[in-house]
């Protein structure tokens, strides 16, 4: 059985956000919820400043606090290491979200994609209402609805349950890459079986020193970061005194 992991090359990542947009389309992610997200920070004092950009997603931890804490096993581990969620079993206690050290689980506070249920047109007699648009394209709930998501998970998760990244398990099952990996224009994301020493992820982790988010808390995350982008240069000195 493979053990899936992702390597994100921060030297290649340009921070374009294509991963997040692709993820939203693939997984019918509602407004306000981010399966694929980022951590940005600006450090230093002007004019000597730097901007850091770290793409984030569910870390599919080996010792996942969300899985340990879920009272109904709605959040569970698959044999391939993916941390999966079953909305039918989810009681909406939000403990997984409370417990997640990485802030990657979200709760559906209200009916998802509410905007597209609106019957009112922006310009009366001029534009179609959001609901008419959905009806005209023959979609379910949202005009860009992806029915393939339904293969392993609710196409749209209902109000009152949590949701998060599943490493696109429905695509992985068919031998495809997660959508964020496929959509990355800079090939900054590499996905594969970390238990196979010949896989691309294993090769990269052997070649480059990696880090993971909040490693010290012992969750053993399976999203690794390598390298960093830094175009800066400085004059060599003898200590700079």
């Amino acid at each position: 059985m493979p053990r899936y992991a992702m390597v994100i090359d921060l030297q290649r990542c340009v921070g374009c956000g294509a991963c997040s947009i692709a993820c939203r389309n693939e997984n019918n992610v509602p407004e306000g919820i981010y399966w694929s997200n980022k951590i940005t920070e600006t450090v230093g004092t002007f004019p000597n400043v730097r901007y850091h950009y770290i793409p984030t997603l569910c870390n599919h931890c080996e010792y996942a606090p969300c899985v340990r804490g879920c009272p109904t096993k709605a959040m569970h581990k698959l044999d391939n290491g993916i941390t999966m969620h079953n909305p039918n079993k989810c009681i909406g206690c939000k403990y997984c979200e409370f417990n997640c050290p990485y802030g990657v689980i979200y709760f559906n506070w209200e009916t998802p994609h509410k905007f597209w249920r609106d019957k009112k047109a922006e310009i009366q007699g001029g534009t179609a209402s959001p609901q008419e648009v959905v009806k005209d394209v023959g979609a379910k709930s949202v005009p860009y609805y992806n029915p393939e998501r339904e293969a392993t998970y609710a196409g749209i998760r209902p109000k009152g349950v949590v949701e998060k990244c599943t490493f696109c398990d429905h695509r992985v099952k068919k031998g495809m890459l997660p959508r964020c990996v496929e959509a990355c224009p800079a090939d900054a994301r590499v996905f594969g079986d970390i238990s196979d020493p010949k896989s691309d992820v294993s090769v990269l982790l052997g070649k480059f020193r990696s880090f993971r988010l909040r490693e010290q808390i012992g969750t053993n995350p399976h999203v690794f970061y390598i390298r960093d982008f830094n175009p800066a240069a400085y004059q060599p000195t003898k200590g700079g005194v």
Partner: peptide, 16 residues
């Protein structure tokens, strides 16, 4: 406080 009270049945059917 719970969002989906009818799912509470899984506390008994699928205990963790």
């Amino acid at each position: 406080e719970l969002g989906s009270i009818f799912h509470m049945i899984y506390i008994m059917l699928s205990p963790n």
